[in-house]
C-alpha cells in the first residue's frame, strides 16, 4: 500500500513543481514572478523533505526562498519605481 501512495505523492509533487517553475518563468509582471519564485522555493523544499534530506530542505527554504525572494522583491520594486520615474518626468526642472 505504501508504494502506490508514494508514487502518487511524487507525481503530484513533480507536476506541480514544473507548473510553478514555468509559471514563474512566463509571468509578465516582475513582482508576480518573484512571488511565484518564493512559492517554487517552498515547493522545492517539500521535494527535498520527501527525498529524505531535511538539511537541504532547511537551506532551500531559508536561503533559496526567503533570502533570495526578499532580495529579488526589493530589486523588482526598485526597478518598477525607476520605470515609473522615467515614464513621467517631473516638471520641476530638467537636469542641466
Amino acid at each position: 500500500m505504501t508504494a502506490p501512495l508514494l508514487l502518487a505523492f511524487d507525481l503530484i509533487l513533480i507536476a506541480t513543481l514544473l507548473a510553478l517553475a514555468s509559471a514563474a518563468l512566463l509571468a509578465r509582471d516582475a513582482r508576480h514572478a518573484v512571488m511565484l519564485f518564493i512559492l517554487f522555493g517552498l515547493w522545492l523544499a517539500l521535494v527535498w523533505a520527501r527525498l529524505g534530506a531535511p538539511d537541504v530542505a532547511l537551506a532551500e527554504a531559508a536561503i533559496g526562498a526567503g533570502l533570495g525572494g526578499a532580495l529579488m522583491l526589493a530589486a523588482a520594486r526598485r526597478a518598477a519605481r525607476a520605470a515609473a520615474r522615467d515614464e513621467t518626468p517631473d516638471t520641476s526642472g530638467e537636469t542641466p
Binding site: I38, A45, A49, P54, A57, A65, G66, A70, R81
Partner: peptide
C-alpha cells in the same frame, strides 16, 4: 528533523506575507 524545516516554513510564510503587502514608497 523535518519539524525544523516546518518551523522555517512558518517563519518564511509570515515574513513573505509581510514583505509582499508592504506599500510601495
Amino acid at each position: 528533523a523535518l519539524a525544523d524545516v516546518a518551523l522555517i516554513f512558518a517563519l518564511l510564510a509570515a515574513v513573505s506575507v509581510a514583505a509582499l503587502t508592504r506599500r510601495r514608497l
